[in-house]
């Protein structure tokens, strides 16, 4: 642990420097919750007041940000919980995990509303329009269910295990990865396969569905213009290494896996977390914000921004969930 802390000293220094200079944009934070194991997903309710948190310890918590309290704790079933999502009206929350089923709960009470059987375990869940629940499974199916009644609306093969999934609030679009693909939510037709590298760890949309963002194991996060299928911006995470050779030691940089990512609703803030626990923040479309700081002593495995982009939540393999105040952006 000491060696790890020493290796991270430059980053700690950057963090401290930022804390002393608020103008640099390093945000204030507090620890909301601790899990035994990795935090696998975090999601904001549409009003930004409630947070759902899932972890490999199987716990799923609903926390109120105003009170900083986590009053309701649920489970995705036996085993690990992998992903959570709120319905568009915020009344329902869906959970998937190691068991081949999706659980739909009422947000206010935490009461179990439906247990929907799946064809395999799932790490990807999202709500589309109305109460339509979309679940991606490891056996390459993307399935749409009526979340309240629990019945299947339609399902289709996507050609690869679905590891991550996002739904655009407007524009009726879904994005899946494995390979990054866009789908029409209305007729399940593939809209576009984006030429992104493999190893997708997260995908997200802007509120208007015109921008998407993808984070990759090979240390890069892309911001996509979906109309043109082109990359608008990117964030890269690197670290310095020393390579010993017969001609002496050479300094080089290697990329660090981007393990999580979030995009502000207006698409003007891109935030990515890497495998070292560093948060990278970049403004887009003319916003010049560009900072990085150490957030966790473990990979950042979960991340969410509220729709206004003023509150960031990060979850990590170190088991903690932290809330960061980004109100300095306004």
């Amino acid at each position: 642990m000491i060696a790890r802390a020493l290796a991270l000293l430059p980053l700690l220094a950057m963090h401290t420097l930022g804390a002393q200079l608020p103008a640099s944009g390093v945000p204030d934070s507090y620890t909301l919750q601790s899990h035994r194991g990795t935090v696998t997903d975090v999601a904001f309710s549409p009003d930004g007041g409630t947070l759902a948190i899932a972890g490999t310890d199987g716990r799923v918590s609903l926390c109120t940000l105003a009170s900083r309290k986590c009053a309701i704790t649920m489970r995705s079933g036996e085993g690990e919980s992998y992903a959570v999502a709120f319905s568009r009206d915020g009344h329902l929350v869906a959970i998937v995990g190691e068991q081949a089923e999706a659980r739909v709960m009422e947000t206010v009470t935490g009461a179990l509303l439906r247990r929907i059987p799946l064809t395999s375990y799932s790490t990807a869940v999202a709500f589309a329009g109305g109460d339509t629940l979309v679940v991606g499974t490891q056996d390459e199916w993307l399935s749409a269910f009526d979340a309240r009644k629990g019945h299947l609306i339609r399902r289709w093969k996507v050609g690869a295990p679905v590891v991550v999934l996002a739904s655009a609030i407007t524009g009726s679009r879904l994005a899946t990865g494995g390979p990054l693909q866009l789908w029409s939510e209305v007729d399940s037709v593939p809209m576009r396969a984006l030429r992104a590298p493999g190893g997708l760890t997260r995908v997200a949309f802007s509120d208007d569905g015109r921008l998407a963002c993808s984070a990759h194991i090979r240390g890069v996060t892309y911001l996509w213009d979906l109309e043109r299928g082109a990359i608008l911006d990117s964030l890269v995470s690197v670290r310095e290494v020393s390579i010993a050779s017969a001609r002496g030691t050479v300094r080089d940089t290697v990329r660090v896996a981007m393990s999580s990512m979030a995009l502000a609703g207006d698409g003007r803030l891109l935030v990515a977390g890497d495998a070292r626990g560093v948060v990278h923040m970049a403004g887009t479309q003319g916003d010049t914000l560009n900072i990085a700081f150490l957030a966790h002593f473990g990979s950042i495995s979960a991340m969410a921004l509220d729709r206004r982009g003023t509150t960031l939540v990060t979850g990590s393999s170190d088991g903690t969930v932290k809330v960061w105040d980004l109100s300095f952006r306004r």
Binding site: V39, T40, G55, Y82, A83, E98, T123, Q138, P161, A257
Partner: peptide, 11 residues
């Protein structure tokens, strides 16, 4: 078991 990467299992 399937491998886990950043908390999520992959086939």
């Amino acid at each position: 078991p399937d491998p886990s990467l950043f908390g999520k299992r992959r086939s």
